[in-house]
Design a protein around this nucleic acid. Structure first.
Lengths: 209, 209
DNA sequence: TCGATCTGATTAACAGCGTTAACTAGTTTT
DNA sequence: AAAACTAGTTAACGCTGTTAATCAGATCGA
């Protein structure tokens, strides 16, 4: 009997439409200014129907957050064919920053906003799988860099954290409009590129014995 | 005639009490969960009275944001007597991270939240004076480090941006609960200290010719 | 086939939000 | 004494996220 399957499919369909509408509205207006009623109106359902598919507003945005990580994951996986680990590490940095610049809303959702993390905290297994995936990829590459002597030996996790912090710092100062308001005219328009270049040069010089 | 002066003083007093109440509530509950009515109730005035002293909610939190910068400014100025620029630079990093760990709410207000920046954007002169003060202090120290050959020559503004990004990255991953959820047990409790140490070592090795 | 149950969605309602407009009482100025 | 200004209030608007009660229709056991 294909009926229950069709119903299952229709349920998934509606869930998808909720998420699509929510993503659209979020990217245009941000989290606070996107209301459950606005999402509902866009898909032509009543607002309370959304609660049949998601626990609350935070859960909706946690789902979007997960999808944003899938998008970034695609871009990171595309770097698997860069064989030199050091080149791959630097390329990861460029991809990361570029993702944040091209998708500031998604970046916010992934690494800055509290709503999706709140949803994780309320959840039964409070583990941030999405973030762990990206971080593990970084750690593996750092590890490989150490193995061939292009980064000084040490705890790869600590090294990864510092590298992540640097690119995240640049990205979030950009997304939350902190850096342009302190930068001189000369550098304002290209500070992210200049900063990233400076940083990759740093990495290269880390291990000239 | 001291009457107008007394009235002026009373006005300032009430403004102060609004800010104190707002700060208390904000540090306890965060921005979204602190309502104008809650602030008003705490100082025993009606909610609309606050609008006689501040344009809107964002303006209240912009004022708190400014005061938070004064607190950080005090700590940074205390480093003026560290004469070696490189030591001063590293000490600034430690003070910065320490400030974020001890005052996560204030750090959020200063470098992550959108509300205070929104208030600046609406303002006539859209310049982020508070941030510029701290950043200029950093640039001056970086400049001094270059002058004595402890940092490689280059654009001190770009170098300062990368340094700021790194410590801000660590601080904001901490404040917004991103790093602990991906870190192994071994490093979780001390990742900020370890990361900062790694970073200052990096800085030191920057210019061994 | 009839009644009971389950399903998916709706409407109504609650309590709270930021903010504006209208108003009031008290003081100052003319 | 009348007019104007001050500092504060109350009432109201149009939102918000969320819960409870309800309703129509499909499904299922007898």
């Amino acid at each position: 009997m294909g009926i229950t399957e069709r119903k299952e499919r229709e349920k998934e369909d509606l869930k998808r439409r909720i998420l699509d509408a929510a993503m659209d509205l979020f990217l245009e207006h941000g989290y606070e200014r996107t209301s459950m009623r606005m999402i509902a109106e866009r898909i032509e359902y009543s607002a309370t129907t959304i609660y049949l598919y998601f626990k609350d507003k935070d859960a909706v945005f946690h789902a979007l957050h997960t999808e944003a990580f899938q998008q970034m994951g695609l871009r990171m996986n595309a770097l698997a064919d860069v064989s030199d680990p050091m080149e791959r590490l630097k390329a990861m940095g460029r991809v990361y920053i570029r993702f944040a610049v091209e998708n500031p809303g998604l970046y916010d959702l992934m690494f800055i906003m509290q709503a999706p993390m709140q949803s994780i905290a309320d959840c039964a297994k409070p583990i941030w799988e999405e973030g762990q995936g990206v971080f593990n990829g970084l750690k593996a590459t750092v590890n490989a860099c150490m193995a061939i002597g292009k980064l000084p030996n040490g705890d790869p996790e600590v090294m990864s954290f510092v590298i992540w912090s640097t690119v995240h710092g640049m990205a979030s100062l950009h997304v939350r409009e902190r850096c342009y308001k302190v930068m001189s005219d000369k550098n304002r328009d290209q500070i992210l590129e200049l900063g990233l270049l400076q940083f990759t040069n740093w990495l290269d010089q880390q291990y000239v014995k």
